[in-house]
Write a protein that binds this DNA or RNA. Structure first.
Lengths: 195, 195
DNA sequence: TTTCGAAAACCTAACCGTTAGTGTTACGGT
DNA sequence: ACCGTAACACTAACGGTTAGGTTTTCGAAA
């Protein structure tokens, strides 16, 4: 029950990293579909079972970089300045995420993902899970009184904004447009108040 | 180039139906995961390759009934009364779809789908495809001037409404709530006009 | 009616992601 | 120094899916 801070953990992390690196290298080199799990395992000098001990699926190998996506979304809600309205905080974070994934460095990976239906499907389903976490974070905000349905809806809309904006010709302009809509959707859920 | 209305088509449709029936029967009887593709093919007295000539995947077997979902959504837009506003037409159709799938008869299938991550994932990704078709239908409406991003956004929101409402304790009340939000989102996209 | 092209179905054998079962090694706490 | 266990390895399989090539069945033109 002690704090686990030893060589064991470092080795584990190193193995994981070695697998992810090998996978990405091979995928970008030969294409996602042309590379088998056994190839990746061999390249990383690791048993297939070990690979699956670190990654739940072949697709998960591709989204190693996105691991903090979910966390960043929920933190944008929970860690925002006191009394800062929800939607602008969401907008700011989603904008950062969109910028991050439309940066030049991420282009080859994006091309790979867009080229594989399996990867696109996996990503969308991952985002839906993120939306659920986000909904929970919103629902837990003591400053908000909206019901579960509204929270889940806004969370889903925010994640939609991310994927829609990413695919638009001008991502940032699209994000502006979508968040104007989300803002309006959120406004009509406020409890009636005078003024 | 003649009109294909012969026995051939009937036999093909019959085979497809036979496979779908066998699949659903076995799935409901033993559970989705406990039934293999080879079992279904044997039960339908058909070769495995034939099965995959009719259905793209194992999951597709489950959603045979939903085949018109996409079509109904787009028709709700294209076939609505002249000058009928978009969002209420969408709302009406989504409500009908929600009612249809929360009906008592569909309960065993719903339970099966909810119990299998693979099926849930497949369904969500299917709905996203439907949202794309819906977006195209909306964008093609000559009475509307909104851009592609807005159309895709509203389409996505409408499909979200379907899946969120379905999972809510009171689906119809949830749908009301969500469509109030969608209506507001849509309103702010109108070109500025006096009155 | 006969003939012929093509669609539909068949069979076999594999491919590939994934998992179970079972050891083996290396670390961390006692 | 010792033991429990987490990490890794190896083999063999399972289950969805596809490739390859053959046979059957229909539709229509000759």
């Amino acid at each position: 029950m002690t704090v686990p801070t030893g060589r064991r953990e470092r080795k584990k992390a190193a193995t994981r990293q070695k697998i992810a690196d090998a996978a990405l290298r091979l995928f970008l080199e030969r294409g996602y579909d042309a590379v088998g799990i056994r190839d990746v395992a061999a390249e990383a000098d690791v048993a297939v079972t070990t690979l699956f001990a670190h990654f739940a699926s072949k697709e998960a190998l591709v989204f190693e970089q996105d691991r903090d996506f979910e966390h960043r979304l929920t933190r944008a809600v929970t860690d925002r300045a006191p009394h800062e309205p929800l939607v602008p905080a969401l907008r700011r974070e989603v904008l950062a995420l969109v910028r991050h994934c439309t940066a030049d460095g991420a282009a080859p990976i994006r091309r790979m993902v867009d080229g594989s239906p399996a990867l696109r499907e996996y990503e969308e389903s991952m985002r839906l899970r993120h939306a659920e976490s986000l909904a929970a974070a919103i629902a837990a905000d003591p400053g908000l009184t909206q019901g579960t349905t509204v929270c889940r809806t806004i969370a889903r809309f925010a994640v939609d904004a991310y994927s829609l904006a990413r695919e638009a010709p001008d991502p940032e302009a699209a994000l502006d447009e979508i968040f104007r809509m989300i803002e309006a959707a959120w406004e009509v859920t406020r409890p009636p108040r005078c003024g």
